[in-house]
Design a protein around this nucleic acid. Structure first.
Lengths: 206, 206
DNA sequence: CACCAAAATGACACAGTGTCATTTCAATAC
DNA sequence: GTATTGAAATGACACTGTGTCATTTTGGTG
């Protein structure tokens, strides 16, 4: 966490600094990023940097955090917007996620943020806090889903369904961010895979 | 890639060096690892290190590579052993994967290798080389699966099924490696999720 | 034994981090 | 208007670690 001094900074100066951070962390990864570049860009003396942050890592995490909030928001939206068709919602949000990450100057950083997100969401998913949140939303959610044609009955199962969807989401997103798959293609694949999930793989006795 | 000099080294010396690399890269992550430590441990002069490797990264990738082969092997085994029940096979191999990664002195390194594996396998999955391999194995595989009770008919679908399984595998493995979930619990979850996938989520008209 | 290429060696230049003694600033008291 | 004081700013510098390179050693060959 940045030090109090950082938050005491007047807005202009802080913004300049944040911009410099984003620029440098977008240019290269954390370890190649140089504090010297940052302070040069932000036009602050070297010592000041350490007045604001513990170290490079600290600054990086701070910047990352701001994108982390996007993810949190995404997850929340996900839970809130999930009405009607769970799968349709997923596909829509998947596209939105990809597009929001793509339409930015700081692609590197976003990419990083995204890869990092896995850990974050993973944490969220395993943290007691979110489990509680889930528990609370569960009742409602289960209503929706029970109302549709899905075979989800217990909270346990819903939890695992979300986990599977998340896994598929993540892996398709990786293909976009790491392997340059086009968003359209990714969405198409994603949809296909969700359909398979929905339909299941066992042959119905006919 | 290490330089030729490295491969010319007599076995003893090379092994000592490799041990030193593993030790250092197990202790901390690549960026915290220090070449000074490595050469001290391996009792070679600093300059020699650069005779063998371009830099730290190069040495790291070399060591990682050796574990990478485990993954490749896993993937191959996966494709070969997949007979009878695809899902049963997956569960068995999932456990084997976790256990092989856990039972080692170089846990850090393994963890790293594993997280890295995602990229690797991802590459493999999107590389033309493996796609060709898959194409070749597909015909056979489709026979097996067609023979069982699964609704997989086209190569496309099989490809996506493998992708989904991989995604679920990876995410459960993460819970073990990053979030310290026990292997038994992970396997249990994994099995449950595969069952959901198999069964599908749409209510059958009854 | 002379010669040569490949490999070994370690001193050193260089880059980048984090510290710290000192200075500046701004708010409050008198 | 001036003194006081704590927070913040500043940049020189010590320190750590990387990669280079001129020099030495080694082992093989004519």
């Amino acid at each position: 966490m940045p030090k109090q001094t950082f938050f005491n900074l007047d807005e202009d100066k802080r913004d300049t600094l944040i911009d410099a951070l984003k620029k440098e962390f977008s240019r290269v990864n954390v370890h190649e990023a140089s504090i010297s570049n940052i302070v040069k860009q932000a036009r602050i003396p070297r010592g000041s940097f350490y007045q604001y942050f513990d170290d490079k890592e600290d600054a990086f995490l701070y910047v990352l955090e701001s994108y982390g909030r996007v993810n949190k928001a995404w997850l929340m939206t996900y839970l809130e917007e999930t009405q009607g068709d769970l799968f349709e919602t997923s596909t829509r949000l998947f596209r939105r996620l990809l597009e929001s990450y793509s339409s930015t100057d700081h692609y590197q950083l976003f990419r990083h943020a995204f890869l990092n997100m896995n850990h974050k969401i993973e944490q969220a998913f395993t943290s007691d806090k979110l489990k509680d949140d889930l528990q609370q939303n569960m009742e409602e959610l289960v209503q929706y889903i029970d109302g549709s044609q899905l075979m989800i009955e217990t909270k346990e199962e819903l939890f695992h369904l979300l986990k599977i969807i998340k896994a598929v989401t993540f892996h398709n997103a990786i293909e976009v961010f790491v392997h340059q798959l086009s968003i359209d293609e990714a969405c198409q694949q994603y949809q296909l895979e969700l359909t398979m999930l929905k339909r299941g793989l066992l042959k119905k006795e006919s």
